[in-house]
């Protein structure tokens, strides 16, 4: 990522001088600084994230296992989980297709407006969920939306049903895969692809056999981040879904409904499930990646 060869040349030609190394041979901050950094990092992460998250799990089981069982046998809850799964699945599929395409275009090609596209692609991250919802309502409202009125006449309802939920979810998670893929694509370089093409492989073949395997970890990581974000989206979906009980309530909307109906344990039970699914997905990919990389280094 960084460097021109310059520093390496210097390293090879310089006179070796003893360098402070740690007891296990590490280079870098020693002693007090190292411990200071370590503790600052640990305390910050613990207070900001770790402790609040354990509270989620704690609150879930505060009254024992019974409320948790009740939660996951409630048909309305199961329905909301199903809806979340559908929206997340669509979001992942659409964003992966879009993400891979755009990443390849941004890294491997030149075209007018490339820089603009690069900047715009990060935009959804900075849009407040209320604005996301507002924008979708403005476009698809059946009374005076740009598309809404004509679509309604054709019998196609977007707002307050699954299509709007899918749109909102896909919107917010859009930049995540691209962000992961672009650096990896740059890292991987074109040599192998060019070699394959020069040997007569077609683009689909090259893509499938060379590119995808080379970027698979970045891609997988981007996919699980996209999945996690899609599962957890709340604000935008709330505005566009109509919150129809049993029909357009996603899991996060269900959490809000339950919490406000004084059903705290159930709300936390669902939250724990959503958090666990995302965490497991992220861990799995990280572990697999670490194992594959250590194997390739040995």
């Amino acid at each position: 990522m960084c460097c021109s060869g310059g520093w390496r040349d210097v390293a090879e030609t310089s006179v070796a001088r003893p360098i402070a190394r740690g007891p296990r041979g590490q280079v870098g901050a020693q002693g007090a600084t190292k411990h200071l950094l370590r503790w600052v990092a640990i305390v910050y992460v613990a207070l900001l994230v770790a402790w609040p998250v354990t509270l989620v799990f704690w609150n879930t089981f505060a009254e024992g296992l019974q409320p948790v069982i009740e939660t996951f046998t409630d048909p309305l809850v199961l329905n909301s989980l199903r809806l979340t799964a559908i929206a997340a699945a669509w979001s992942v599929v659409l964003n992966t297709a879009f993400g891979v395409t755009v990443s390849m275009l941004l890294v491997r090609y030149e075209f007018p407006g490339k820089r603009l596209l690069n900047a715009l692609v990060d935009l959804p991250l900075s849009v407040s969920p209320i604005v996301v919802g507002l924008s979708i309502v403005l476009v698809y409202s059946t009374t005076n939306g740009w598309f809404g009125a004509p679509l309604a006449n054709a019998g196609f309802h977007v707002l307050f049903s699954t299509p709007a939920i899918v749109l909102a979810t896909t919107f917010v998670a859009m930049p995540l895969i691209i962000r992961e893929l672009v650096p990896v694509l740059q890292e991987v370089g074109v040599d192998q692809e060019q070699a394959a093409r020069s040997l007569g492989a077609s683009f689909p073949q090259t893509f499938r056999r060379i590119t995808i395997p080379a970027i698979r970890w970045g891609l997988l990581y981007g996919i699980v981040l996209c999945l996690a974000r899609s599962i957890g989206e709340f604000g935008a979906v709330k505005v566009v879904s109509g919150n129809l009980i049993g029909q357009t309530q996603t899991a996060t909307l269900m959490v809000e409904q339950l919490y406000f109906d004084f059903d705290q344990e159930k709300a936390f039970a669902i939250s724990s499930l959503l958090a666990v699914i995302s965490i497991i997905a992220i861990i799995t990919v990280s572990l697999l990646r670490a194992r594959a990389e250590s194997r390739s280094h040995s």
Binding site: V45, V49, A50, V53, V56, L225, A228, R229, I231, G232, E233, F234, G235, T252, V255, E256, Y259, F268, S271, L274, A275, S278, I279, I282, I283, S286
Partner: peptide, 13 residues
């Protein structure tokens, strides 16, 4: 793992 949790947790929670 903990560092990635803010991605994973619904904001209302």
């Amino acid at each position: 793992i903990v560092i990635d949790v803010p991605f994973a947790l619904p904001t209302i929670v």
